[in-house]
Amino acid sequence: MVTSAQSFKVSALVVTFHSGPALKECINALCVEQAVSEIIVVNNGNSEADVNWLKAFNPPGHCAYKLVDGHGNIGFAAGVNLAAANATGDRFLVINPDAVLRVHSITRLEEARTSGPSPCLVGGKLIYPSGNEQRGARRELLTPWRAIVTFSGLFVLGNSIPAFRNMHRERDPEPENAIPMPVVSGALCYISKEDYEAVQGFDEGYFLHVEDIDFCRRIGEAGGQVIYTPKACALHYGSTSQVSATFVELNKARGLARYFHKNAKTPLGRLSARASFYAFAPLLVSRSFLIRRLMMARQALIDMTRPKTETPPPSRVRTEQDA
C-alpha cells in the first residue's frame, strides 16, 4: 500500500488553458490525495481571476506547489514536458485540469505500474459526471483504417464484421484488475520519471490531441507496456476549455496526420499520411457540428417535456469527448 510514508514522491502535472471552474476542483482533489507530494501547474492561458487564484493558492502541508507561466499557449505535449522539467518527484501523474481524481487512486496506479516491464505507463478509468465510463481510457492502437472506421461511424458494423471494430473499448466488459491495454488516456496516466525520460517525454510536434496515442506507442516500441486499471479513477468533465470546436478538430486532424506520417514505412505511406489531413479535417469538423446539434436538440426535447413546476438542475454543457 502507498502511504504518507511512501519511499517515492509523486508529482501531479497539470496543463491548463482557460479550463474554467473545473480547474479548482482538479487541484483541490489532488491536495486531498495524500500520496501526491507535489503539484506542478503549467498555465498556458487562463482568465485573470483564475490566474490570480493559481498564484495565491496555498496547498496543504504534505504537498508542494509550483505555478509555471508566462510562456503562452505552447500546447498540451510541450506543457506536460515543461511541467516534468520543473517536477522533483520520482513518479509523474499526468492529469487534465478538468479531471477530479478519486482518493487512493495513486495506490492503485503504483500497484499496476510495478506489475509491468519498464518503461511502463498506467492509465486509469475516466467517468462522466453521471458515473458512466467515458470513452478514451481504453483504446486500440491507431491505424489509418481504424481512424476512418471510428470517426466516420462505420464502427456500427463492428459487431458483425471485426474489421470495423471501433478503436474505443469502453463498451467492452470492464476488467476487474489491471490489464495490458494498447492505448490509455493522457487525461489520467502515471509513469515513473525514469521511464518518462527513457522515452523522451511527449512529442511536442503534437499541439493538441493524439500525443497520448503516440506516447503509448513509443512505450511499447521501447519494450515496455501500457496498462489500464479500473481501480484508479477520475471524474472527467471534458471539453471545458474555452476554445472553438473547429480549432480542436483541426488540431486533432493535424495530430492524426503527424502520427501516421511518423509511423509510415514507405515514401508513399508518408505522402498519404500528409495528405490525410485534408480528409480528416472536414470529417472531424462536420462530425463535431452534427454531434453538437444533436445534443442541443436532445436538451431542447428534455426541456420541453420537463414539468413547468420542476426546477431544472444546474447544467454543464458536455460536448463530444476527445478521441
Score class of each variant (00 low, 15 high):
D303I: 04
P313C: 05
Y128E: 10
Y206Q: 11
I219H: 03
S160N: 12
K66A: 14
L256V: 12
R171D: 15
E204T: 12
I179D: 02
P267V: 07
L208Q: 02
A64R: 06
G61K: 11
K308T: 13
W145A: 12
G61I: 15
K9L: 13
Y196W: 09
N46S: 15
Q225L: 07
M1S: 14
P117G: 09
S130V: 00
I227D: 01
I74E: 03
D90C: 06
P59Y: 07
R113G: 04
Q6S: 15
S315H: 14
A85Q: 13
S288H: 11
E170C: 07
G70M: 04
F207D: 00
E110F: 08
T16G: 02
G79Q: 11
A78Y: 06
Q242S: 14
A273E: 02
N44Y: 01
F8Y: 15
R113D: 05
A12H: 04
E174L: 14
D50V: 14
S11H: 10
T229W: 04
V156A: 06
M167W: 10
P180F: 06
K55I: 10
I179E: 06
Q321R: 08
V285R: 02
L82D: 09
P97H: 11
R274K: 12
N177L: 11
G223E: 09
E170S: 05
L283K: 07
C63D: 00
S37D: 14
Q225F: 02
G45I: 12
V10N: 02
N28P: 00
A112E: 07
V15L: 10
P267G: 04
I27C: 04
Q299C: 01
M181Q: 15
H104N: 14
L121M: 04
N251L: 03
V156G: 02
L301S: 03
F17C: 12
G224D: 10
R292A: 01
L126N: 01
L188H: 00
T150E: 02
F207G: 00
V15Q: 11
L235P: 00
Q321H: 09
L268R: 10
K252Q: 15
I179T: 07
N73V: 02
S152G: 06
L271S: 11
T150V: 03
E140L: 14
S130C: 06
N81T: 06
N96A: 11
G220D: 05
S130G: 10
R217S: 11
A5G: 13
Q299N: 04
K66T: 15
K66V: 07
S37F: 09
A83I: 02
K262C: 07
V100Q: 02
R258Y: 15
S105A: 05
E310A: 14
S272L: 15
V80F: 15
L82T: 14
D98C: 04
E33S: 07
Y190N: 01
V183C: 11
R91K: 13
R139L: 09
Y190H: 00
L23P: 07
T16M: 03
S118G: 01
K125G: 04
E33L: 09
L30E: 03
V183S: 12
L93T: 03
F215R: 01
A178S: 13
A257R: 07
G124W: 01
S115H: 11
E221Y: 14
V15W: 13
P162E: 10
G186D: 02
A87L: 05
P59Q: 11
I148D: 00
F151T: 13
Y128I: 01
V226L: 05
C120R: 04
G45L: 09
A257I: 06
L126V: 06
